[in-house]
Design a protein around this nucleic acid. Structure first.
Lengths: 350, 350
DNA sequence: CTGAAAGCGCTTACAG
DNA sequence: CTGAAAGCGCTTACAG
């Protein structure tokens, strides 16, 4: 037996095949499928039947080339940690983004990049998208450099959690009210009578975390309380935050309260305090930030701030799609509210 | 003043522009850029300089159409929970996948789909990718239906954590040794003297979770211990698992041990036991599965099984890319090992 | 209501 | 070593 001829079914079915089979022109098929132009119902039905029978699926690549539109958003996560989705604050943003995009027939291309790699090669230059969303970390100067690089793609850019609107025109920032949340944390702690407080921050700072601390700081400054003492952790991991807290506790008297840069760090600090023999919240109070699922896992339940991460992602998608339609961002700076959420790791205000 | 003419810089720079500017043909530019054909060094350098000066960026869409290759993998996550990235087991797989793909110049399109939506419309038919990776949940019958639908895309498919190799030819499954891990958990618990045990499972089962329990079950059956009692939780969330455990505890004597379907559920069960006044591990032992960061957050530290989630994602990408090159999967069923990790939520074997 | 032609921006044989 | 032509699979004016 000879090698059988490649069956027709194995070739890609194109719009021409459908047209030929249906006895119409390719453009009629296109019109039927896209609901454009005027086509008689009879023809349309017939075309649809042939499409179904042949299993025709339009080529997205051809459509993209023809219309120079990609129906795609690129999401860039620029963090040092290769396990870039381990932070629930990031995953919630990604989820919100992709859920909104899917509902509006857009695709999401997801990519994590290390800042160090970013400098050497354009690791996102091959992403052909109608717009980009980026989560940046690191120093201000580095972030500004990223933003400039991003602008070379010549597509609209939304920056998540960036605090300062860049000069680039076709760019919007969207963030939650970290400063306000931090301020509420500070006020709450002050109201419990705490005065001497620590702040737990990672070496590589997030702009958002800095804003949280600035908020707490402003409350302390107004109240005339002593300055917040910064405890630097190598990173945000449980282990490192735990060790940093324990070491700080060994070097002197404990603080009245520890303000964690996020929930993860706060929980590590809580464990460190407990292991060092302090009672929470009687001796040391603890606060976190973000209120993701883990915040309930600990005992006592963490006082924290409920963040709008999922909403941030959704909103980014919404604004971007609106931008595509109107030609410019309707708002270049968007701030979503956060909600203070008292737990049992702090005392009731006296 | 009249409307200024659209500046040249605003038009997309094509390969023709570069060719004209460099005084060569478009194909020479293409050859220089792709390192194909024989081009004199002098010409190549000149072309590269012009590319740089004009800020030329090749059109991926055109390249895709021409070569009918997408350099893109689609990742489909079919779960009921719209917050589909909240499970660290899933995010670790996604991260492993995209990290490997990025390193090999592939893009990842990420999409979460509800099983219910899946049935009605092809929510992934518009994804034009060279291959697909899917994480499926739900009943066996439903998953089989998904797999069939996926095969209509006519691209290679890798199924994560699927236990049974489907009939579809161009399809591979990759999973970790959940059965073996579950068996080790069972053996460990039996060795501590526990006999009367519960198992915590969500209503909507994961094939992997079922395998874990089957593993534990086999150890119990061999030892002649009493059957594992299944406690059904509405879902995997902290709240629901907590409530289900508490309710079960109220209805009769506590078990010697509770085997959680994953870490999250185990931690919820642990809290429920503690809140009900039981000591862990003296009165009730607890085990989880996966060993993600949260397993350390609790006290006592959870006995669990370290999973290979990140490696699963990487491996999926690797196998898929190998499949593109060779024309067929080199292995259709891949099982990665897991590692039992004893903590303090179980007693030492006596 | 329907169709023939042109073109989106590339790359692959095929010639020279 | 270099180039002119054809074509990937669509859709958009433009005619009829």
């Amino acid at each position: 037996m000879k090698t059988p001829k490649k069956p027709a079914a194995d070739r890609t079915v194109t719009i021409k095949d459908v047209a030929r089979e249906a006895g119409v022109s390719a453009m009629s098929v296109s019109n039927v499928l896209n609901g454009r132009g005027r086509i008689s119902e009879a023809t349309a039905d017939h075309v649809r039947a042939v499409v179904e029978r042949l299993g025709y699926r339009p080529s997205v690549a051809a459509r993209r080339l023809r219309l120079s539109q990609q129906w795609t958003i690129g999401m860039l996560i620029v963090v040092e940690d290769p396990d870039f989705l381990s932070d629930p604050f990031i995953t919630a943003q990604v989820t919100g983004l992709t859920n909104y995009l899917t509902a509006h027939s857009y695709s999401l291309i997801l990519r994590g990049i290390k800042p160090s790699d970013f400098r050497t090669t354009g690791l996102f230059q091959d992403i052909e998208a109608d717009g980009m969303v980026a989560i940046l970390s690191g120093e201000q100067e580095q972030r500004e450099w990223f933003i400039q690089e991003l602008s070379t793609l010549r597509v609209p850019v939304v920056l998540m959690q960036e605090q300062r609107l860049p000069d680039e025109a076709d760019c919007a920032i969207i963030r939650q009210d970290d400063f306000g949340g931090g301020r509420q944390v500070g006020e709450h702690i002050l109201a419990t009578g705490a005065r001497n407080c620590w702040v737990l921050l990672p070496q590589v700072e997030w702009a958002a975390m800095r804003a949280r601390m600035a908020g707490a700081d402003s409350a302390f400054a107004e109240a005339g309380a002593s300055e917040l003492k910064i405890i630097r952790c190598g990173d945000e991991s449980f282990e490192v935050s735990y060790d940093a807290t324990l070491q700080a506790l060994r070097q002197g008297p404990p603080p009245d309260a520890i303000i964690g840069g996020n929930d993860q760090m706060a929980i590590a600090a809580m464990k460190a305090c407990l292991d060092a023999g302090f009672r929470i919240p009687e001796q040391v109070q603890i606060t976190g930030f973000n209120a993701f699922e883990i915040w309930r896992y600990v005992d006592p339940v963490l006082t924290t701030v409920r963040s709008a991460a999922h909403a941030l992602g959704e909103r980014a998608a919404e604004e971007l799609i609106a931008r595509f339609k109107s030609g410019q961002f309707r708002q270049r700076e968007i701030v979503l509210p956060v909600e203070f959420q008292p737990g049992n790791s702090t005392r009731s205000p006296s």
